[in-house]
Every structure is written in C-alpha cells, then in structure tokens.
Amino acid sequence: MAARDYGQYSGITRAMELVGERWALLIVRDLLVGPRRYGELAAGLHRIPSNILAARLKELQAAGVIRRAPRSRVIVYELTPYGRELEPVVLALGAWGFKAMDEPREEQLITAESMTMDLRSAFRPRTALELPTTSYAGRFGAVDLLIRVDGDELDVTPGGDASGSGLGGVGPVDLAFAAGPGIRRLITGELEAGQAIETGVVEVLGGRGELLDRFASTFRVAA
C-alpha cells in the first residue's frame, strides 16, 4: 500500500504515490550517482530525520524502486532497473528547477551527489559531440569533482585536485577551477565565461582558463 493514496486512477497519480513523499526523490537522486550505505545517505541528506529516512527506504523497497545489496561485508542501497527508469525524470526536474534557483541561504549546502546531478541535468551532449575531449577539476564549495567530457559521454567522479593534476593516476586536467553557488549564473547563461572570471564567480586554479567558455557551452540550462 502506498504511503499516500490520492484516490485517482492515473499513471502520474501512481508515480506520485510511489516517489512523491518528502525526501523520496532526493534519495533516488543520490542513488542515481551510485549505491550508498545508510550512513552515506543520511550524511548527504543532512536534514532528513532518521525515522523518515528509514521509512522512505522501506517504502521505496516495497515499490520495487530500490533494493538492499551486500557489498564488501556491508549493506548498500541501490536502484533497481525499474528505479533507474526515473533518471530522465530526475534530470528533467533538475533542469527545470535550476531555472528557478535564487541565491543560496546560509544553511544550504552543496554535496557531491547534488552537484553531480546538477551537472548531469545541465549537460548538453549534442554540443559536446562537436568539441574535443576535455577534463575539468572543479571545486564547488567544499566539494571537489573530476569532470570528463568525451563526445556525448559525461563522467563525474568525486575527488579532483585543485592543482590541476587530476585524480591519482588519471593525469593532468585541461582546466581546474573553483566556484561557489554562483556557478549557476554561468550555467544559466546569465554570465559569460570571461565575466564569471572577472567578477570572481569562478577562479581559475590551473590549466587553460579559456576552456571555461567550453565548459559553459557544454553545461547550459537556458534561464
């Protein structure tokens, strides 16, 4: 039985009954990045009460959206194939919500999972196909990510190195930069790459600074 019954016979209604409860889609978002232990989910969703997290995980399992799986002597939560079908829905919601974002409140955090999915939401594969393979080391607040674009393929890996040397064993990146929440102004096209650097929204830490324009072309959500 769904946690909430809207009393309508409709595909959208049924979807809302399965994943429309508070926090449910954010759990799905984080699991789209990869399997997570209970504690990792709790840390990534730092405001979620433990009883609500436990309840949502139980409901999502009952709906066939996620499952528990043993990994190296620990239990992780991962999406089922049915759950992974939510990926284009989550990415579309992310792109839609990006347009309505304002300045962050002081208590709002950027997590590796949230930034990874924001980048995936803004990724323009058709544009990327026309550009050379490029790797970026991005520092977003306290989150470091290695971002590699190869044709229409995007790979985002936690880690990155602000010196521009990339992750261990990966080799140097083409551009290393740091940015706070103001990066959204570059992604929505409110700022051009040169303006973002001049105004301090983005700080070039290594590599070729002119490649920020390529980054802005590759990750763009029209405001």
Rank of each mutant, 00 (worst) to 15 (best):
Asp5Asn: 02
Tyr6Trp: 10
Gly7Ala: 02
Gln8Ala: 12
Tyr9Glu: 04
Gly11His: 05
Thr13His: 06
Ala15Met: 14
Ala15Lys: 12
Ala15Gln: 14
Glu21Gly: 02
Ala24Tyr: 00
Leu25Glu: 04
Leu26Asn: 09
Ile27Leu: 06
Leu32Lys: 01
Gly34Lys: 00
Arg37Ala: 10
Leu41Ile: 07
Ala42Met: 09
Ala43Cys: 10
Ala43Val: 12
Ala43Gln: 13
Leu45Ala: 07
His46Trp: 05
Arg47Cys: 09
Pro49Thr: 04
Pro49Gly: 06
Ser50Asp: 10
Asn51Leu: 13
Ala54Thr: 13
Ala54Phe: 11
Leu60Glu: 04
Gln61Thr: 11
Val65Phe: 00
Ile66Leu: 08
Ile66Asp: 01
Ile66Trp: 00
Arg67Thr: 09
Ala69Gln: 07
Ala69Ser: 10
Arg71Ala: 01
Arg73Ser: 01
Arg73Leu: 02
Arg73Tyr: 02
Val74Cys: 02
Tyr77Leu: 05
Tyr77Val: 04
Leu79Asp: 00
Pro81Lys: 08
Tyr82Ile: 00
Pro88Arg: 03
Pro88Asp: 02
Val89Asn: 03
Gly94Asn: 04
Trp96Pro: 03
Trp96Ala: 15
Phe98Trp: 14
Pro104His: 01
Glu106Lys: 13
Gln108Asp: 04
Leu109Ile: 12
Ile110Arg: 14
Thr111Gln: 07
Glu113Gly: 10
Ser114Arg: 06
Ser114Ala: 14
Thr116Met: 03
Met117Tyr: 10
Met117Arg: 11
Asp118Gln: 04
Asp118Cys: 03
Asp118Arg: 04
Leu119Thr: 10
Ser121Cys: 11
Arg124Cys: 08
Arg124Gly: 08
Arg126Leu: 12
Leu129Met: 15
Leu131Val: 08
Pro132Lys: 08
Thr133Phe: 05
Gly138Ile: 00
Gly141Ala: 13
Leu146Gly: 06
Arg148Val: 11
Asp150His: 10
Asp152His: 12
Asp152Gly: 15
Asp155Val: 15
Asp155His: 13
Gly160Trp: 13
Asp161Arg: 10
Asp161Gln: 03
Asp161Thr: 04
Ser165Thr: 13
Val170Asn: 00
Leu175Pro: 01
Ala176Ser: 11
Gly180Glu: 14
Pro181Met: 07
Gly182Leu: 05
Gly182Pro: 01
Ile183His: 00
Arg184Val: 11
Ile187Tyr: 03
Ile187Trp: 09
Glu190Arg: 13
Glu190Ile: 14
Glu190Leu: 13
Ala193Lys: 03
Ala196Ser: 04
Ala196Phe: 07
Glu198Asp: 14
Glu198Thr: 05
Thr199Ala: 00
Gly200Val: 09
Val201Asn: 07
Glu203Asp: 07
Glu203Ser: 09
Val204Ile: 14
Arg208Tyr: 12
Gly209Trp: 02
Glu210Val: 03
Leu212Met: 06
Leu212Trp: 04
Asp213Gln: 08
Phe215Pro: 12
Phe215Trp: 05
Phe215Gln: 11
Ala216Val: 00
Ala216Arg: 01
Val221Asp: 04
Ala222Asp: 15
Ala222Glu: 14
Ala222Met: 09
